[in-house]
Amino acid sequence: MRQLGTLAARHAERFAAAVRTRGIATDLRPEADGRVGVWINNEDQLAAARHEFEAFEAEPTAARFDSPPSSVAVDEIPSQPTKPGPLDRGPAWRRLPVTCGLIGASVVVCLALWFGNEWPGNEFGARTRQAMSIASYQIVAVQGLPRPEWDGLNDIRSGQIWRLVTPIFPHAGPVSLHLPLNMAWLWLLGGAVETVRGSWRLAMLVLVSAIASNLAEYYFDFGFGFDLANGLKSDVGLNPNPLFLGMSGVVTALFGFIWMRARLIPRSGFMMPRDMVVWMLIFLLACVAGMFGPIANVAHGVGLLTGMLLGAAPRLWRGA
């Protein structure tokens, strides 16, 4: 199901009745601003429906849109859709399989990571962390401090390509809010993308943004902080490190994707409140400033840019 756009209430019923005679089924849903949202039920008819909608917007009184009046007047449209919408059909794991799968995988990996070493004689948690990292490593003491030691990205070059993606699943914890916050954002943003664009497109967006943000975070550090003893300090530059984890790069990519689609393609079916944009950008800047401790700032930034580029791609392509 996809939204074509919105019309004045007096025009929405006329358009729906006209395209119904052409075999195109629509849903009419009241919007908060008093207009009526027009939704197409069958995405196979999307191109034809958009053509009709654009023609109607250009000339709503054209004779081609004359048709017998519908038995339901516009002002009688219920405040809730009479048909179940895309968020109302069946259990969540059927409606949003990719979103639920990502959340489930993250929870399972984190439970193994956090509690896998509690069983006597078992180092399952440590092995899970090694398997999920972008590179296998050992912790060694350097001048009395623990440091990772690893052999670059040779694991990936030898065929372990899953390591390009799997760092998104482990999270800090269990007392940290890292996992619940990322999963809440994933449910909200990933669910929106999967509802509007479908499971395969969400899966591809997650795959591309995970690879981009993981590689960027592996190779680069970026952040600023301030303490009373040393004043302003920075950590910027090329500094490979396999010790990063979390879904944040994917979450910021989903945010950037929805933001650009809602802003540049109003009929895309997405919406992004301005307040949410402001608070997300404030949060990302606070992370860069070191207010929340060690943060994968490069993954955040690259994920955001990746999502924005993919979200703006249709408009950029048409404008090229």
Rank of each mutant, 00 (worst) to 15 (best):
L4I: 07
G5A: 07
L7G: 02
A8D: 15
A9I: 08
A12W: 04
R20I: 05
T21C: 10
D27C: 01
L28I: 10
N41T: 12
Q45L: 11
A49Y: 03
R50D: 08
R50T: 10
F53S: 00
P60M: 13
A63S: 13
F65A: 02
P69V: 06
S70P: 00
V74F: 10
D75R: 12
D75K: 07
E76W: 05
P78G: 07
K83M: 08
L87A: 13
G90K: 01
R95T: 05
L96H: 12
L96M: 09
L96W: 11
T99C: 06
G104T: 10
V108C: 06
V109A: 09
L111Q: 04
A112R: 11
L113Q: 11
W114D: 03
F115Q: 05
N122P: 04
G125V: 07
T128P: 10
A131W: 14
S136V: 09
A141S: 15
Q143T: 12
G144C: 03
R147G: 02
R147C: 06
P148M: 04
W150Y: 15
D151A: 14
G152H: 03
D155H: 06
F169C: 01
H171L: 02
A172S: 11
P174F: 05
P174S: 13
P180F: 07
N182L: 10
W185T: 10
W185C: 12
L186T: 13
W187N: 04
W187D: 02
L189A: 13
E194Y: 03
T195K: 10
T195H: 04
R197L: 14
A203F: 12
V206R: 02
S209Y: 05
S209W: 03
A210F: 06
A210S: 15
A212D: 04
A212C: 12
L215K: 03
A216S: 13
E217S: 10
E217N: 10
F220I: 01
F224S: 00
F224C: 00
G225T: 08
L228A: 15
L228M: 12
G231N: 08
K233F: 13
S234D: 07
D235W: 11
L238Q: 08
P240V: 01
P240L: 02
F244M: 00
G246T: 00
S248P: 03
V250Q: 06
V251F: 02
A253P: 01
A253T: 01
F255Y: 09
G256H: 08
G256E: 08
F257H: 14
F257S: 06
F257A: 09
I258T: 05
W259Y: 13
R274W: 12
V277H: 05
W279P: 01
F283A: 14
L284P: 00
A286L: 12
C287Q: 12
V288M: 00
V288L: 00
G290E: 04
M291S: 07
A296L: 03
H300Y: 06
H300P: 01
T306Q: 08
G307K: 13
P314H: 02
R318Q: 15
R318K: 14
A320N: 09
